[in-house]
Design a protein around this nucleic acid. Structure first.
Lengths: 215, 215
DNA sequence: GCACATATTGACCAAACGGTTAATAGATTG
DNA sequence: CAATCTATTAACCGTTTGGTCAATATGTGC
């Protein structure tokens, strides 16, 4: 020891371009998050490493730690982004203003199935976060809240349906119908992820409508 | 060097009991697999480490490598075991001999929902394997085959149903109905895993039967 | 009771990980 | 243009991982 063993880049061995303020903070964070999203898609959340994210964004892993203090915060930010963009359920005004509850529900079901079929990768990532949530309470809480909101949107519709045409059966409640609708969407999501090629939306909808007697 | 720096247990520092043939091969493998299952349940498949499995089974990690050449083979054996015991779908004779297809389907649905509600942990592990399958072709193939068998069992029933009462709707096919049934079961599995406390089988079944007009 | 196959252990290794830090390039400000 | 702040890099550290291996204990056949 005595003289060498210092840390940091050695001047002689460097290439050309090095540090400095190039891009604004917000852009860098977004860039890193995007890289994290891509890595998570291909390697899974558990396979996501700070180094892989850095490599994907073409920067050092030290910089990732500079913008996100820890890997946990990076993953948390990624979950925020996934929840915000995947937006577990978004009822557009067009659907919300359909007069008949039955038609409204049908339109919403179709929208959701279309969305699931179109973005299987994002949904898959959502499920991975959910799996993570089974072992991590804070993550579970955030996802659970999102799913509650999802079911609530369906519940208002099934309640309106039963209001118009009550005597559908003995134990049929708005909660039960909403739960069934959500379960069906969830099941479709699983199916669309497992085997996207054989996921035929038209056939699914035709079957559902046939069963429900919607002509 | 010259004398020390040898590997293996040092005689002086050992306790009392050590190696030897204690249990037969098959038992040891099963013991390790069970430990792997328990570790996977608590830490997830990605969190499963050879050392953790060894610790859980109260033996050294070296022994795990002795009975399973690599971690990959251990995980593969675990998948075999999960598929065999979770048995994605098993139609018992009692149900298979129900005369009316409609009643048969209803009984099968009820059995599956009961099973899912009773073993959420196993189902969760199954889903984790499936997530792993999205990035690992051999795993995907095995799971996919199992799910195909699952859907096929439903298809024979829906085909028999349509045979008895054909004109249910325009686009209603046996394939479509089977797909819907499977999707519903999948969705229930997800729901049962996400929020087991609020998973009310009776309400679900009542809603489904009410919708289908089964009285 | 000795040879031999089989189990079993702990030490060891290389690789990869999350995280910290000194050095430094560039922008900002006075 | 010098001081200062921010962004960035590579080296480094401690830990954990999958995997290998020599040593060793135990049963089996002869």
């Amino acid at each position: 020891m005595g003289e060498a063993a210092i840390r940091g880049p050695k001047r002689e061995e460097r290439g050309d371009s090095m540090p400095g303020r190039k891009a604004p903070e917000a852009t860098r964070r977004e860039q890193i998050l995007k890289a994290a999203y891509e890595v998570a898609l291909t390697k899974g959340i558990d396979g996501l490493t700070v180094r892989a994210v850095g490599a994907r964004a073409k920067l050092s892993h030290g910089l990732v730690h500079f913008h996100f203090k820890s890997k946990a915060q990076l993953v948390s930010a990624l979950l925020d982004w996934v929840l915000a963009t995947t937006a577990v359920l978004h009822v557009p005004a067009v659907i919300a203003h359909i007069p008949l509850a039955q038609d409204r529900l049908r339109a919403l079901l179709r929208q959701e199935m279309d969305r699931l079929a179109k973005e299987p990768r994002r949904i898959r990532l959502f499920f991975e976060f959910w799996a993570l949530g089974t072992r991590h309470a804070p993550t579970r809480a955030r996802i659970s809240a999102e799913l509650d909101r999802y079911r609530a949107a369906f519940r208002t519709m099934t309640a309106a349906m039963l209001d118009r045409e009550p005597a559908r059966g003995a134990g049929v409640t708005a909660d039960g119908l909403a739960a069934v609708a959500v379960s069906f969407v969830n099941g479709c999501a699983v199916q669309a992820m497992i085997d996207p090629a054989h996921f035929d939306i038209e056939q699914y909808l035709a079957s559902v409508e046939g069963i429900l007697g919607w002509s």
